[in-house]
Structure formats: C-alpha cells, structure tokens
Design a protein around this nucleic acid. Structure first.
Lengths: 229, 229
DNA sequence: GTCTATATCAGGATAGAC
DNA sequence: GTCTATCCTGATATAGAC
C-alpha cells in the first residue's frame, strides 16, 4: 500500500531532503498487527487456551515472525497486557483536578465516581480485569503493574484531592488514603463486584446512580465538615 | 488396606447380620481421590493449563476411570469447584444471629467483619476466587453459583440483621440490602481488592483491624441512630 | 526480516480386556 | 468398575531458504 523500505532510499520530503525511514517501519506495522490479533485471542480465550496458530492466522503474519519479535508466548502475553492496561485507564484523567474547588461537593463526588464506574464497568475492561486476575499466579508482574496503574489514575489523585479538601476545612479525614479507598469501594467497588461474577448483566444506569449516590452519602456522613446551620 | 467389595459378602456386624456394603464403596473412594487430585491441579494451574495426565497420576486412578466418572474435563472441573465452594464458606455461618441483640453494636460489627475478612483473605480462598473469576466467561454457571453462595452466607443474613436492627430502632437504613453491601465493601472489600492483585502479600493483622474498624465507623456514621446523650 | 515447512511432544479422550 | 495401551489432534517452537 504505502512506501516500504524497498523504495525508501529514493523518497524525499518537501525540501528534497531524503527521508531516512525507520528501517523497521514495516516491522513496526507487523508488530502492531501481531499485538492486535494477540490481544483479541488472549481476551477471548485466556492465556493458556489461546493458540499461537490462531494469533498467526488473524495477524496475517507468519508464526516465525511472531517468535522473532516476541520470543515466546509468555513474553507476547506480557507485552500485550502491559500495552493495553495504561490506555484503558486514560479516559479517567481529567476529572480529578477540579474536585477541591467544586462548589457542590456532593454533586462533584457523584460525578467523579459515576465517571469511574462508567469506565471501569465497560465490558472490555471487565474482561481484561478478569483475565489479569486469573493469571496473577502465573504473572505476578501484572499484579504490580495493575496496582501501579490504578493507583496513579484513581487512588493517588483522589487521595490528594481529599487531603486538599481537608486543608480547606471542607472534609475531616484523618487518613485520606483510606478514605479514598472507602469512597471507591462503596461506590464503584460494589458495582464492580457484582459484574465480576455476572459478565453479561447490563449496566443499569438507574442502579448505577442509586448506588453511587448512596455511597457518596455514606462517605460524607463520616467525613464532611458540617456547614454552619 | 480396609475391607473391599471383594470380601464384603462375608462381613457381618455385631449382631451377625451380613453387612451389605454400598456396591460403589470403592468407587466412592476413587471418586474422592480424583476430586482431591483435580482440585489441587486446577487451583495450581487454572482450567486450561491443568493436565488430565497429572490428575491421573496424582489420584492413583487410571485415566479411563476418571472419564467414566466425570465424562470430560469440563464436567470434572465443575464438579470440583461446585464441591469446594460451599465448604469454604461454611466457617462463616455462626456469627450473624447474635448481631441484633449485641449490646455494643460497634464491637459486634467489627467482630463480624473481622471474621469475614480473616476467612475470605485466606490464601486458598483467594486462589479459588481468582480461578473462578478467570474462568467466568467459560463457565458462567460458576458466577451464578458464587453469587448464590456468598449471598446465602454473607449478604443475606447481614441484610436481615440490619433490617432487624432497624425494627429495634438502633439503625436507620432505608435500603438494608445496599447498606449490607456497603459495609462489606468498605471493610472486607478493600482488603480483598488489594490481595486479589498481590497474592503473596501477608495478612497484616494490625492493618486488618485498622481498615475494618474504620469501615464500621463509616457505616455507623451514616446509619446509626444516635443514642440519647 | 520474513516466510514455508517441519520437528517434537503433550493434550484430551477411547477401545477392549478383565 | 477398572485398567493398559493407544489414537489423533493440536500445541509451542525452530530450521533453513530468500
């Protein structure tokens, strides 16, 4: 389709300067095709039942190429999961910074936890989560990676926000890290637990709102500083 | 070692009455040996990586016998897990009934959730839990079974206790089922979540007590009826 | 770097004697 | 009911040409 390494030596940019392509340009595309095919297969079948033959046919690349790139099945699996994990949580980033300044704290917390729940309950993320949990004993690295990603994306920023709200005199949480865990657990965690064992259950928006609101009220009943009334 | 079906026809009890043994007495013992060996193999390797050959050697029974008893690998797996699940939760039964009459509600809730946590965080139960979660897509029945067992053993009785405490005027929980989920989630759930992804981490009793107590305080801050003070 | 063709072996499952 | 011996498919991984 596009320029390949074969004719790359004669290609020039707008200034007539030869474009030196990454010698592994085609290799990179193949590498990505392998990763995509492998991800689909691993998510559908799990690690052990996944077949390198199936990954080979779906990727359109020969099996020998896969082994040249990734060495063996374990390394391919780790590369695939480690590549997927951070990107799935990327949707959660923006919602934390404004929390400390929100005029209506309850509404802000409900919005935050609802966003968390909506992302984390997505079927593809739940499937990935089940896969990682099931393979933790075989791949302990994935547990550490999962912990780091969820901490950086969820618990870490939330803990900081709770600390800041404490400084502002709006919350009274002696242990902000634990308070953050409690807020997550009593909102997202409840819904996640049910969905973990019931993969095909629909995400009922009304139930989501009800559980999340009740969890936020639980949190505020314990940690909110009573306004002058 | 012991009496087998071969010489059973001549065995008599204390009254001289011939003991008619269950014709499948030896078969039952073999069946149990298969289940034990299979449980060890499945818990160690997962479903797909578990080997019927390994189960065969460890059980001391021939492979053909295993297939006569259980038909195929899937049915063996389901029989094993369905057999283990209820027994692992049997340790939780007694602690619920006395809850409504406890003089010190906070202490009683801390004791209850501590017992829950101590059992559910046991490494063998965590391993079983990871296995079931990882195989949910292949065996949706296990998800329903898991839900039923945990509901009957945990959430159900706890919901009833909260309802009863509401009738007694000691709690004010408009949705007892949700309140029960919140109590579990913000105590056991937090510890379980961490251990799910960190299989080798020790269960720190001090941390357990701290998290459980804080979760109970969270629960009571929202639902306890203030005593006359 | 990439492919075709193949080595090598373990997997689940069964036939048939006893 | 139980065993021994075996079938056959599919698995991961590699050798060697281009």
């Amino acid at each position: 389709m596009d320029a390949d390494s074969k004719n790359a030596a004669s290609a020039t940019d707008a200034y007539g300067i030869p474009i030196i392509p990454d010698p592994s340009d085609s290799a990179q595309r193949k590498r990505q095709a392998i990763i995509d095919a492998a991800a689909a297969e691993f998510l559908a079948e799990g690690y052990s039942a996944a077949s390198m033959d199936t990954i080979t046919s779906r990727s359109g690349v020969s099996k020998a190429t896969i082994y040249k790139h990734f060495g063996n099945k374990e390394r391919l699996f780790l590369a695939v999961i480690a590549g997927i994990l951070p990107t799935t949580y990327a949707d959660l980033e923006p919602c934390n910074s404004a929390l400390a300044q929100a005029p209506d704290l309850r509404a802000a917390l409900i919005g935050l936890t609802s966003d968390f729940a909506t992302v984390l309950l997505r079927p593809d993320i739940m499937t990935l989560r089940r896969l990682v949990i099931g393979e933790i004993d075989r791949f302990p690295q994935l547990g550490r990676l999962w912990y780091q990603v969820t901490y950086d994306m969820n618990n870490g920023p939330l803990t900081e926000a709770i600390t800041e709200l404490g400084r502002l005199g709006r919350l009274n949480a002696p242990d902000p890290a634990l308070a953050a865990q409690q807020l997550i657990a009593s909102t997202v965690g409840i819904l996640q637990l049910v969905r973990t064992f019931a993969p095909d259950s629909e995400i009922d928006q009304a139930e989501l709102g009800r559980v999340v609101a009740s969890g936020v009220d639980l949190f505020l009943a314990r940690y909110a500083v009573a306004p002058a009334s």
